[in-house]
Every structure is written in structure tokens, then in C-alpha cells.
């Protein structure tokens, strides 16, 4: 077996004196400083509340939404798959019989406690009928009380996805 000789650095006087390394480091940071100071548009950060991020991808997991059928009724069949898959147990579903003949079951209440939710997306993956998604693109959720963080069925149904149907994780 051939022995691979790894070159060792740092033993010459030039490297041991550190002066050149120090100068090179200082030069680099000074260059960054002067370019950014003379033209602040070089800085890649964005001024957040005024400038919203423009790079949210279609796989981004934002606030949840409940999708609808073509006839504008709720797609969810209250199968409890999402609530079962949820690792933080933040989905609360109460089922009831569906009387309009479209399906057999529908959720009477469907609420998500956003303070518990860890936005893992397991509910979206678990859903057999693509009823819950996280493609609203909403990442900033603000409320004044704990109760307001529990979003109910009506609120979830009112959200619209910013990306097309074909981007669903379930399908």
C-alpha cells in the first residue's frame, strides 16, 4: 500500500511569523467594509418589514389551509389521519355525518393550535385526499392572545394557496 504524503504547512518562517496572514485577513475584512460602506446596495440582506422575501419556494411550509372540492364544499372527510400523524398533537377534529350526499363524513370543527404546531408538514403528507396543505406562503403569524392562535375550520378554509394544485405534497 502506497503511503500518501500529506504536505504540512505552517513551518516556514513566513508562516510562523503570522504577519502575512494577519495582513491578508485584515485586507479582506477592510475590502468588505469599504465596498459595503461606499454602496449599501451591495448588501444582500433585505429590509424585512418593508421588503418582503421574494424567494419562498413552492415547498415552503407556511400557514395551513383546508382545500375545497370543485363545488366549493370542504374536501376533508374527518378521517383523523392528520391528527394521528401530528407529532405535537395540535390538530383537533370533531367529525359529523355529512348530509348533502357528496360524502359520508365531514369535520364539524377542525382547529389547529399554531402555538403547538411545529410546521413539520406530516399532516399534509398523511392526508389521503389532499384536504390540508401548507402552501399559503404565510410565515408571520401574529396574535395578541393564546386563543387567537387556535385557527378554526372557517379560517383555514378561507386561506388560498399561492402555488398551483400540482405542487401538493400529497399527490
Amino acid at each position: 500500500m502506497a503511503v500518501k504524503v500529506v504536505p504540512r504547512y505552517g513551518n516556514t518562517l513566513k508562516e510562523k511569523s503570522y504577519i502575512w496572514a494577519v495582513v491578508a485577513g485584515m485586507k479582506l475584512t477592510l475590502k468588505n467594509f469599504t465596498t459595503n460602506l461606499s454602496d449599501t446596495s451591495c448588501i444582500p440582506t433585505c429590509e424585512y418589514p418593508e421588503t418582503q422575501p421574494s424567494d419562498i419556494t413552492d415547498r415552503y411550509r407556511g400557514l395551513h389551509l383546508l382545500t375545497k372540492r370543485d363545488d366549493d364544499t370542504v374536501r376533508c372527510v374527518a378521517c383523523f389521519m392528520c391528527a394521528t400523524a401530528c407529532p405535537s398533537e395540535c390538530i383537533f377534529i370533531e367529525a359529523q355525518e355529512r348530509t348533502d350526499g357528496v360524502d359520508e363524513k365531514e369535520p364539524k370543527t377542525f382547529s389547529i393550535d399554531l402555538l403547538e404546531c411545529i410546521f413539520c408538514g406530516y399532516c399534509v403528507e398523511a392526508c389521503p385526499c389532499d384536504a390540508i396543505r401548507m402552501d399559503t406562503g404565510i410565515f408571520s403569524i401574529i396574535a395578541a392572545t393564546r386563543e387567537e392562535f387556535i385557527v378554526d375550520k372557517e379560517k383555514l378554509l378561507s386561506h388560498t394557496g399561492i402555488f398551483g394544485k400540482e405542487n401538493s405534497l400529497a399527490q
Binding site: N32, F33, N36, L37, T40, C42, I43, P44, T45, E47
Partner: peptide
């Protein structure tokens, strides 16, 4: 401020 500008922030 100097730290920020050196690290490409504001």
C-alpha cells in the same frame, strides 16, 4: 455598524 458592514449586513 462596522461589524455589520464587514459581515455584509446593515
Amino acid at each position: 455598524r462596522v461589524a455589520a458592514l464587514i459581515q455584509n449586513r446593515l
